[in-house]
């Protein structure tokens, strides 16, 4: 999945390129899985890492290339919380609210972030840098409360540490 991504300045897109180029890449990617049984979810993961999110016209391309009804594609996109239909920030912050993190004060991290970013969980900052979500356990329960930014895990987070944690992400 998305480990290292390139970003267009200010945009919510996860790969560089014009709209046309990106659509072409999505089309090629989907086409290469044509006829492969059960690959829809895996294709959507890849497409999302190319395009950044999965708006309807992108779902349409996937549907055409995999020869599936659009309703099937949309049904899958809406079922799984990892798939986004709205533009996302360049980075995704996920604060864990799994049981261990909840017990160890995850709520205070969520509240502090909401304050610092000026958005509610589920939202994207106006500058397009961060999408902020709640996670249901990221498997770092031994080091609760935990959060991730993209694939980097931050253990035993304290509200006071947040500015320092976020700082380096603004630049890239």
């Amino acid at each position: 999945m998305s480990t290292t991504q390139q970003h267009e300045a200010g945009g919510a897109v996860h790969c560089t390129g014009t709209e046309e180029e990106l659509e072409k890449r999505v089309r090629q990617l989907a086409a290469s899985y044509k006829g492969k049984e059960g690959s829809l979810i895996q294709v959507l993961h890849m497409v999302q890492s190319v395009y950044g999110y999965l708006p309807l016209h992108i779902q349409q391309i996937v549907a055409e290339e995999l020869e599936l009804p659009l309703s099937t594609v949309s049904g899958v996109v809406s079922f799984y919380s990892f798939f986004a239909t709205k533009p996302r920030g360049r980075h995704t912050i996920r604060v864990c609210m799994g049981t261990a993190c909840y017990v160890r004060g995850g709520v205070s991290i969520v509240e502090a972030l909401e304050k610092q970013l000026g958005i509610q969980a589920g939202g994207t900052t106006e500058d397009g840098v961060f999408t902020f979500e709640i996670a249901r356990c990221i498997g770092s329960c031994g080091l609760a409360p935990a959060m991730t930014i993209d694939d980097t895990v931050y253990p035993e987070v304290k509200a006071a540490d947040l500015p320092e944690i976020l700082e380096p992400w603004y630049g890239n």
């Binding site: 799994g98 049981t99 261990a100 249901r136 356990c137 498997g139 770092s140 329960c141 031994g142």
Partner: peptide, 11 residues
């Protein structure tokens, strides 16, 4: 899938 929050044995 290890979905139970608070579980990290399988990982």
């Amino acid at each position: 899938d290890e979905g139970d929050p608070g579980a990290f044995m399988d990982r």
